[in-house]
Simulated scan of single mutants.
Amino acid sequence: MRTKRVRAAVVPVLAAAGLLAAAGQPAGAAGGYPVDYHFATGFVAGFFGPGQAPPGANDWSCRPTAAHPDPVVLVHGTFENQNDNWHAAAPLLADNGYCVYAFNYGAAQGDPIQGTGPVAVSAGQLASFVDRVLAATGAAEVDLVGHSQGGMMPRYYLKYLGGAAKTARLVSLAGSHNGTTIDGITELGRQIGLLEPANAVLDLACRACVEQEVGSPFLADLNAGGETVPGVEYTAITTRFDEVVTPYTNALLPAAPNVTDITLQDQCALDASDHLEIAADPIAMTDVLNALDPAHPRPIPCQVVLPVTGPLL
């Protein structure tokens, strides 16, 4: 708590003094579509239009280039949808020459709150959508970029549904790879004997929520034998200020030759992105671009980024 109070006091002073990097977006963005690095405004703009793709996504006439041969499929998180989750990543990737696609999963069509159904069923929906993207673009593989559950759920597709043969990279933003304690609530519930009754009720509305708890049978099965599969490159990006996937290190993957783990504050101490803002954060978005195109790395910007509301400048 003391660290947060100090940050809150220091950030405005540094900004006023002009001591912060002023880079508003990752280097190299062409700028054809407006990129919204503020999760809150993007969420509001997209929440009630779940059937509409975010800016820059779902151009089914797009053909991948030699520079970017793999289409990018964006996988939203729990309680989010294809539109409200991706007002930064979708236009940014399109501006940088990628064919970009987004879809809804885990809820009824037209429901703005998606991603609540069983993770295995959602992974099947991802499998169908990837096949549609590959058929439309003529590409051999896709790259997957996911937020929260959208970073973890594709691993079921890769492990059990043949996705490894169709996927070159998986980039996760605050992915729930090893589950969440929900700030310790699940452990407290276990100790006082209330977790199972609470989960029985929660399961009726959000099976995916229960399956993402630390120690769930679903995660135990998914992670058995290793959390990655051969042939796929993984990048797991997390923030120390994640209040949803707790502890925040549960969003990382075990060290391996095909795994790159990134904690945003190791790159920029001014970045206070939380679980939501990480999906729009200009620093995290640069990491996404670098993960998708490691042969042409971009410099990592450093600037004040606030939880939910995004860049201060």
Rank of each mutant, 00 (worst) to 15 (best):
A15Y: 12
N81T: 13
G162Y: 01
P64C: 04
H76K: 04
T238W: 02
P26Q: 02
T239F: 03
A256C: 11
V44D: 12
T239M: 04
Y98V: 12
E233A: 15
Y105H: 10
A251E: 10
T116G: 07
A269S: 15
L252G: 04
N58S: 07
V100I: 08
D271W: 05
S61W: 08
T181V: 14
P217I: 08
G179L: 05
G310K: 00
G225F: 07
F241P: 09
A53R: 00
I237F: 03
M285A: 12
V35S: 02
Q114R: 06
P34C: 04
G46Y: 00
K166P: 03
H76Y: 04
L92R: 04
L158F: 03
N290E: 10
H177A: 01
P197Y: 01
A236C: 09
E227W: 05
D293W: 02
C99V: 15
Y156A: 10
L19K: 02
L276K: 05
V142A: 02
V304N: 11
G151T: 09
P118R: 12
E213Y: 09
I185R: 06
L222Y: 02
G42A: 14
E80I: 10
L161C: 06
C209S: 07
H76M: 05
D84N: 15
L264R: 01
D59C: 08
E227H: 12
N85F: 02
L222N: 07
V259Q: 07
V304A: 15
L126T: 07
A284L: 09
N96V: 14
F48C: 10
T228Q: 04
P12R: 03
P71V: 15
S172W: 04
P69Q: 07
A27L: 08
A16P: 10
G97V: 04
V201M: 13
A165V: 06
S61G: 14
M1V: 14
I192M: 14
T78G: 14
L170V: 03
Q191D: 13
A272H: 13
F218H: 08
E80W: 12
N83A: 05
E80P: 13
I192Q: 09
